[in-house]
Write a protein that binds this DNA or RNA. Sequence first.
DNA 1: TTGCGTGCAAAGGTTTTGCATGGCA
DNA 2: TGCCATGCAAAACCTTTGCACGCAA
Lengths: 139, 139
Amino acid sequence: MKQNSGYKTRQKEKILQYLIDHPSQHITVQDISRHLSEDGFSVGTATIYRQLDQLVSDGTIRKYTIDNRTGACYEYLPDTKECHRHFHLKCMQCETLYHVTCEQLSQLETHILEHHGFQIDQSKTVLYGVCQSCREKIK
Amino acid sequence: MKQNSGYKTRQKEKILQYLIDHPSQHITVQDISRHLSEDGFSVGTATIYRQLDQLVSDGTIRKYTIDNRTGACYEYLPDTKECHRHFHLKCMQCETLYHVTCEQLSQLETHILEHHGFQIDQSKTVLYGVCQSCREKIK
DNA sequence: TTGCGTGCAAAGGTTTTGCATGGCA
DNA sequence: TGCCATGCAAAACCTTTGCACGCAA
């Protein structure tokens, strides 16, 4: 996992760099396409899709979709060791990523492993929802 | 919420019945379309989408998307509130998606809300890791 | 009868694929 | 040089929309 597969091309580099420069955000294929064009380095849509697929397979980025949004989103996953010690909570409103260390979460991990036989990978897991300040805004 | 809006038509009835007959499953528009055709009661795709939208608004069913899947999924929500509380566990090895209902997970949701002010959206959240059978294969 | 529901076809998006060409190793 | 990567365009999908007709209330 996380071993760059394939050749190192300029397109691939640019795409990944854009994702790294915008961590914890809902990046779409369109965003990447638009950004690279503005940068004077247009990349074909098909290439973007193909590279993103590869990055997802490598475990470098994550792909997900958000309802009432059209198209998939991609997000760079930081690889720092600290990230294995806590969970990520991501607000779908303001896009903030919260890093949470919590006994309850550790217990959950143990429970899921012991009772469901499933070993959770904290670094890859993101809990989606709405944070406090955004919930207050809505009211 | 949960009050059937609009007219009662045969199409609507058939669509909802199919969802009720397949609780806790990832039903797609195609599934419904195919099933109804086989039943000798074809319904136009546009109608299915329109009815599903209405059922989602009513709160009768839930709409969500799954990564690496094309198209949205729908799911009937049984009346009891607790029953539709479940999370998704996805194995990064075999890509299987597990559908888990678990008291511990519900407690976690409550805990995160009360202690961290964060309202988790289960339909968007997927816990990544490795499932039991894949862990056994590795050893 | 009134007005929503339905079907069909067309339109609007997103994502994938085929194929010739280009570029990394 | 051997292969993978890229671009372009076409194709394949999913979902929405417009419109005339059908049907529930």
